[in-house]
Design a protein around this nucleic acid. Structure first.
Length: 913
DNA sequence: GCAAGGTC
C-alpha cells in the first residue's frame, strides 16, 4: 500500500520544478480550481515507503488581516482605537480557489509536506496551509521540507530530513503583520482626516495621506539627501597643474598633493615651481589590473543597474521582469542569491544564447572555455540568481531592453574579467611631484558583451625615467570648489533601503512607487528624486514634534525584535505590547501637537482654510483619546504666543489669536471668549487655556469649555463650574471672601446649607461646617468646612426644579440627591423626565434613572439583554449608552459603556462598566 | 480610503 502524500509549494513554478526533479520528468499534470496553480502527480520513495504524491501550490500568502467590521469605517472610531481594535484573519476572494483546491486534496491524503520558501514569510505561508489542511483533515500528518535550492541533491536531502514548522518564525511574521497594520492604519487615518479638514482644498475628502513603516523611511532618505544638498557649504581648494606637450598629445600632470585649502601655501609652491624651467621624469610604473566581471544577478542589482542604465523606474523593471518570467523567458526574478550553486548546469543556458544575433558570438566564446561564473556571497536559500532561460528576438521596447540586460549580464558573469594596463608617470619640479596616468584595456573579455560598464582607453605617450622635460615655468594654480552630493536616484534609494533593512527585495520598488503615488516625492527629468512640498512638510512637522517617523531606525529596531522572536530571545506578545504602547504614546504626542504639522505644511501650502476648533465632537476624532489619556504638561512646543502677553482681557485674547493664528482669520463658527483673567487651567502646552462657549446649535449649546489659547495642542475640558440647563441654574466661579460666601453655600439639594459648629470633644471642636438643613434620613451628604478655601456660589434662575421634584429622595451614585431633568433632545424620549447626578456634566457620577418607570423607552437598536438596567448611562450626545465588551487586547472581556451611534455620529462617550 | 508581505 502506497503512502498518499500531499506536497504544497509556495508557487506553481516551484511545484512544477520539484515534481520534475523528484519524478525524473515523469509526472502528470491536471487542473486545480485556481487557473495558475496546477496539480502534479508522481510516485517516488519516501521514508522507505512507496508514495503517491500530489503536488499542489499556493500563490504566496493565502490569508490577510484587517480590522473587524466595527472598525472599518474611518469616522466611527478615533484612529487611536486602531492600536487595540480587534483584528480578523480573512481569505480574500482571489485566494478562495486555491484554498478550495488544497482543502479538496488534503481530504484525499494522509500526509502533508510543506515546500514553501525557506525564509520567515515562507514559514508563515506554511503555517497558513497547515491551518487549512487541518480543518479539512484533522488527522493529516504534517511535515516541513527545507531546501535552499531547487536541485536534485537539495530536494532529496529535504525529504529525508523533514522537520516541523518553526513556530518562532511564524510568530515573528504574526507580529510584523499586526504592527504594520495597526501603526500604518492609525497614523494614516489620523493624518488623512486631519489634513482633509485643515487644508480642504489640497486634500479633499477621501484623499489619503498615508504613513507606513517602510514607505516613510524611504521618503526620509529622499528628504535627508535633499537637505544635505541644500545645507551644503562649498569649500574652496587649490591644485597645481602643468601641461606637457609630446608630439600631438597634451598631457596634464597634476600636483601629487591633490587639492589643498591653503591658497597661500599653494601660491608659494607655484612660485617655487615656476622658477624652474625643467622637470625630471622621476618614475614610470606600469601595472596590470583585472576589472572584475559582474556578480550573478539578484533582484536588488537588477533594480539598481537596470534603472540606472535603461532609463526606467525600478518598479517598471520589476513588472517587466515578472512578465518575462511568466513567459518562461527568464528565471524567477525575486531572489537575493548572487552565486550559482556548483551543481547548477550553466552550459545549456549559455548554448541557448548562441542563437542571439548580437551576443551569440560571445556565448560561443564562453562555451569554448566553459562557463566560469563569478561568485557572490548572498543567498536567500530558495532561489538561484536571475538568468535567461530561452532566447527570443521577438520582444520590443522596454521588454526587449530588460531581457537583453539580463542575458548580457548572465553572459558577462560567465565570461572572464577584463584586463587592463595602467601606466603612471611621475615628474619632479623644484622637489614638488606631479603625475599623469593612462589606461589601456589589454583584454576586453566580459566588456565585449556588457556595454553597461563604460570603459575606454586613456592613452598616455611614452616617457623615460630620468628624462628631462621643458616646462618653461608654466605651473598654473586651479581654484576648485567642493560640490554637494547629487540627489538620489532610484538605484541609490534601493541601495539605502537594502543597507538599512527597509522592506524586502521584492518590495523595494513598491515602496518607492508608493511615495511617488502619494505625492511625497517628484521625479526629476534626470531621474533623480526630490521630496515634494507634502513629503517635506510632513517630515518637518513630525520632526518638530520630536518624533521623526521617517527615520529608518524605527524599522530597524522592529527587525531586531523580530529576529529576537525567531531565535527565542523575545515573545511575540511581548514585542506587540511594547511596540503598540510605544507607538500609541508617539501617536498621542503627535496628535496633541499636530498643529506643528499644520504649521509645517502651511509653509508650503499657504494658510489653512478652515478653523480647526469647532464644536468639540466635530473636532478631530482623536480628541476623545487625548482627553481620556490625559497627556498632561507636555513640553512647551508652541511657537505662536507667550502666556504673559495674553492675560489681560478676553478681547485681547481673541485679538492675539486672530493676529497670530492663521486659522482664526477664516473662522466660520463664531465663538465667544469669556473673561479669563483668573484662569489657572493650563493646556498641554503649559500655558493658561482659554474659556470658550459652544455656539453651534445642539445639545451642548451654551456650554463652556477650556481649550488651548493658541490652538497648538488638543487640550479640551468642559468647564465644570458653569452649567446651563433648560430652566436650570447658572453656576459661576467667583472667588468670594469667606464672609460674603456664607449666605450662598448650597447643599446638594440646592438649598442654602446650614452653618453648624462641632461640639464633640475632638481636634475639630469649635470648628464650623456646612451641611444639609434637612433632618437625618432626608438630608443629602453635603459637607464643607467653613474655613476651607474659595468655593462655588450659586445664583438661582427661574423654573429651577426643586426638591419637590424628587419627593422619593432618589440618590445618585455619589450619594447626592439626584436632579430631575427633562429630555430636550428631539427623539423618541423627548419630554420624558429622568434623574441624574446634580453635578455638572464632566464631573458628575453619570447616574441615570427614568422618573417614571413606565416611561422607560429603549432605543430599538439596543438589545435589552445587553443593558445593565441598574447602570443606565447617558452618553455625551444624550443617548443611552450601550454595554459592550472588549474583544481583544489587555482588556479583553472587560465591559464598557459607549455611545450607541454609528456612522460617524459616535460622540466619543466611554466608561468602563 | 489605511500597512507590508507574499505572488501573478
Amino acid at each position: 500500500m502506497s503512502l498518499k502524500v500531499l506536497f504544497v509549494a509556495e508557487k506553481n513554478d516551484t511545484a512544477k520544478e520539484i515534481s520534475r526533479i523528484m519524478s525524473n520528468n515523469k509526472y502528470t499534470r491536471r487542473e486545480g480550481l485556481s487557473k495558475l496553480n496546477k496539480i502534479y502527480g508522481f510516485s517516488c520513495k519516501m521514508l522507505n515507503n512507496d508514495a503517491d504524491i500530489t503536488m499542489a501550490s499556493v500563490s504566496g500568502h493565502i490569508m490577510t488581516i484587517d480590522f473587524s467590521l466595527e472598525f472599518k469605517s474611518w469616522e466611527k472610531h478615533p484612529p487611536v482605537s486602531l492600536f487595540t481594535a480587534p483584528i480578523e484573519d480573512y481569505c480574500p476572494e482571489d485566494s478562495k480557489p486555491i484554498v478550495n483546491t488544497i482543502v479538496r486534496e488534503a481530504k484525499e491524503n494522509e500526509m502533508l509536506v510543506l515546500w514553501t520558501d525557506c525564509d520567515r514569510e515562507g514559514e508563515y505561508i506554511a503555517s497558513e496551509i497547515r491551518h487549512i489542511c487541518l480543518i479539512a483533515n484533522p488527522s493529516i500528518k504534517i511535515y516541513r521540507a527545507r531546501f535552499s535550492e531547487i536541485t536534485y541533491a537539495s530536494i532529496h536531502t529535504a525529504i529525508n530530513q523533514m522537520e516541523m514548522i518553526n513556530e518562532r518564525l511564524v510568530a515573528a511574521v504574526d507580529c510584523r503583520k499586526e504592527l504594520d497594520l495597526r501603526i500604518g492604519a492609525a497614523f494614516t487615518r489620523f493624518l488623512s482626516l486631519r489634513l482633509q479638514k485643515v487644508f480642504p482644498y489640497h486634500f479633499p475628502t477621501n484623499h489619503v495621506v498615508s504613513y507606513g513603516p517602510c514607505q516613510f523611511p524611504t521618503l526620509g532618505f529622499v528628504v535627508d539627501r535633499c537637505k544635505q544638498v541644500e545645507h551644503f557649504v562649498p569649500k574652496k581648494f587649490y591644485k597645481l597643474r602643468t601641461v606637457v606637450e609630446r608630439g600631438d598629445t597634451q598631457v596634464n600632470f597634476f600636483w601629487s598633493r591633490g587639492g589643498i585649502q591653503d591658497r597661500t601655501e599653494t601660491e608659494q609652491s607655484q612660485r617655487g615651481c615656476n622658477q624652474q624651467s625643467v622637470a625630471i621624469v622621476y618614475r614610470v610604473v606600469s601595472k596590470s589590473k583585472s576589472e572584475p566581471r559582474p556578480l550573478p544577478l539578484n533582484t536588488v542589482e537588477l533594480e539598481k543597474k537596470a534603472s540606472r542604465k535603461l532609463d526606467m523606474s525600478a518598479k517598471q523593471v520589476m513588472m517587466i521582469a515578472e512578465k518575462l518570467y511568466t513567459q518562461g523567458l527568464i528565471s524567477y526574478p525575486r531572489t537575493e542569491t548572487n552565486f550559482f550553486p556548483p551543481s547548477f548546469n550553466l552550459v545549456p543556458l549559455v548554448e541557448e544564447q548562441t542563437r542571439a544575433e548580437q551576443w551569440g558570438d560571445t556565448a560561443r566564446h564562453i562555451l569554448r572555455d566553459s562557463p566560469t561564473p563569478s561568485e557572490g556571497q548572498k543567498s536567500d536559500q530558495a532561489h538561484p540568481p536571475i538568468y535567461p532561460i530561452k532566447h527570443t528576438s521577438s520582444l520590443q521596447g522596454n521588454e526587449r531592453k530588460v531581457y537583453e540586460f539580463i542575458a548580457r549580464h548572465f553572459l558577462a558573469c560567465c565570461h572572464k574579467d577584463a584586463q587592463t594596463s595602467e601606466t603612471t608617470v611621475e615628474i619632479l619640479v623644484n622637489k614638488e611631484s606631479f603625475s599623469a596616468s593612462g589606461l589601456i584595456i589589454t583584454a576586453r573579455n566580459y566588456l565585449d558583451v556588457y556595454p553597461y560598464d563604460e570603459w575606454c582607453d586613456r592613452r598616455i605617450p611614452h616617457f623615460t625615467q630620468g628624462e628631462r622635460i621643458q616646462i618653461e615655468g608654466c605651473i598654473e594654480m586651479i581654484e576648485c570648489e567642493t560640490t554637494p552630493p547629487s540627489y538620489l536616484t532610484e538605484a541609490d534609494l534601493i541601495q539605502l533601503m537594502d543597507e538599512h533593512g527597509i522592506g524586502t527585495d521584492a518590495t523595494h520598488s513598491d515602496h518607492i512607487e508608493r511615495i511617488k503615488m502619494r505625492g511625497y516625492v517628484d521625479v526629476q527629468l534626470d531621474g533623480t528624486l526630490l521630496p515634494s512640498k507634502l513629503g517635506r512638510g510632513l517630515v518637518e512637522g513630525y520632526t518638530k514634534i520630536g518624533h521623526n517617523l521617517a527615520n529608518s531606525d524605527l524599522r530597524a529596531e522592529l527587525e531586531r525584535d523580530l529576529t529576537d522572536i525567531c531565535v527565542g530571545k523575545k515573545e511575540k506578545n511581548e514585542v506587540i505590547n511594547f511596540m503598540v504602547h510605544r507607538y500609541k504614546q508617539v501617536f498621542t504626542e503627535i496628535s496633541s501637537h499636530a498643529i506643528l504639522i499644520d504649521e509645517s505644511l502651511s509653509n508650503y501650502f499657504g494658510p489653512p482654510k478652515q478653523l480647526r476648533i469647532e464644536y468639540p465632537h466635530e473636532r478631530d476624532h482623536y480628541y476623545w483619546d487625548s482627553i481620556k489619556t490625559q497627556p498632561k504638561h507636555l513640553p512647551h512646543k508652541c511657537s505662536y504666543t507667550t502666556p504673559s502677553k495674553q492675560k489681560s482681557s478676553s478681547t485681547r485674547i481673541r485679538h492675539s489669536r486672530m493676529n497670530q493664528h492663521p486659522y482664526i482669520q477664516s473662522t466660520q463658527i463664531p465663538m465667544t471668549a469669556v473673561e479669563n483673567d483668573n484662569n489657572l487651567e493650563l493646556c498641554y502646552c503649559g500655558i493658561p487655556s482659554i474659556l470658550l462657549t459652544v455656539r453651534k446649535a445642539g445639545p451642548n449649546t451654551g456650554k463652556k469649555f477650556y481649550t488651548c489659547n493658541t490652538s497648538s495642542c488638543e487640550y479640551f475640558v468642559w468647564d465644570k463650574t458653569f452649567e446651563v440647563q433648560e430652566g436650570g441654574y447658572f453656576m459661576e466661579k467667583i472667588p468670594t471672601s469667606f464672609s460674603s460666601r456664607r449666605d450662598l453655600v448650597l447643599c446638594h439639594c440646592n438649598y442654602p446649607a446650614k452653618l453648624r459648629t462641632v461640639d464633640k470633644d475632638n481636634l475639630n471642636k469649635g470648628r464650623q461646617f456646612y451641611n444639609c438643613t434637612k433632618q437625618k434620613g432626608n438630608a443629602c451628604e453635603f459637607f464643607q468646612w467653613e474655613d476651607d478655601g474659595p468655593t462655588l456660589s450659586i445664583q438661582y434662575f427661574k423654573n429651577n426644579k426643586s426638591i419637590s421634584d424628587n419627593p422619593k429622595g432618589i440618590k445618585c451614585k455619589c450619594g447626592r440627591l439626584a436632579k430631575l431633568r427633562t429630555v430636550s433632545k428631539d427623539g423618541f424620549n423627548k419630554g420624558k423626565d429622568f434623574y441624574s447626578c446634580p453635578k455638572p456634566i464632566g464631573g458628575d457620577c453619570r447616574f441615570f434613572k427614568w422618573a417614571h418607570e413606565e416611561q422607560i423607552m429603549i432605543s430599538n437598536n439596543l438589545i435589552t439583554s445587553q443593558i445593565d438596567t441598574a447602570k443606565l448611562l447617558l452618553c455625551e450626545c444624550g443617548q443611552l449608552s450601550k454595554l459592550m465588551t472588549c474583544k481583544e487586547g489587555s482588556n479583553k472581556g472587560r465591559k464598557y459603556y459607549g455611545c450607541p451611534k454609528k456612522n460617524g455620529r459616535w460622540c466619543g462617550f466611554f466608561e468602563w462598566a
